[in-house]
Design a protein around this nucleic acid. Structure first.
Lengths: 121, 121
DNA sequence: TTATATACATAAGAAAATTATGTATATTTG
DNA sequence: CAAATATACATAATTTTCTTATGTATATAA
């Protein structure tokens, strides 16, 4: 898995943790590979998370006490399920709200009224 | 100017260049400080660009041939105006479109339908 | 006269992602 | 049956990008 996104890659930066927390707030528990597939599905292939980004992010969220893990072996292969902690659940709500507001702000910039007069050069 | 944003700072990552190009596609020419003020104005203070992020980004965009500069002295103080090149203008359109699509994709994730059945665990 | 605003710049460090590997099993396909 | 692809984890080296901090300098407001 080497291709990250059909978007300019920079755009994803800063949103990964929020995406992970959001998915986990909807899905009780998920494992890493499942998260990549779920994101691919929801975004119709537009976002493909790379392992090099995902796994370190999951480890960081666990280290920060936002996620907890359960290991299971399914058909000889290991799975590590991630689940929100109580703190993680609160943080998820907070970060999703923040991202939604940020999206609105970005839209304001992207649709800025052409040539308003407040700045004359 | 040390405070960057009322948002978690990560969110801004990856969007700065698009913001700059968008503003310049609306404003013919702008100088650095003006860009910080314009962004503050449009976002109602929610985004404050730091110099440490802005100036290197402008220099990079110039080095990449997307911006060109005109220096002027206004009231004993130097101003460096930035303007889109032809390439920069095309790139601006492209990156703004990309960001708009990315925003829609992000919204899809943030509003993901709870518990659809395509992934059973 | 001191703080704030205007106006540029850059360097050190941190954070986060990309890119590239590595290990291993299961399944599909030619 | 062999090879490719999918599943499933992990990490190290590097790059990019931003934060934080600092530096220079003039103008204006308190």
């Amino acid at each position: 898995m080497y291709i990250c996104s059909m978007y300019s890659k920079e755009l994803l930066k800063g949103t990964l943790k929020t995406i992970i927390l959001k998915l986990l707030s909807e899905n009780d528990r998920m494992y890493g590979y499942q998260i990549t597939q779920k994101v691919k599905e929801i975004t119709e292939g537009k976002i493909n998370l790379t392992e090099g980004a995902l796994y370190p992010a999951l480890h960081k969220l666990e280290a920060d006490g936002l996620l907890m893990t359960e290991k299971e072996v399914v058909g000889n292969r290991m799975r590590k399920y991630y689940k929100l902690t109580k703190t993680g659940n609160n943080k998820a709500t907070e970060m999703v709200d923040e991202l939604k507001q940020f999206i609105e702000t970005l839209k304001a910039i992207m649709n800025v009224a052409p040539q308003n007069l407040s700045w004359s050069v």
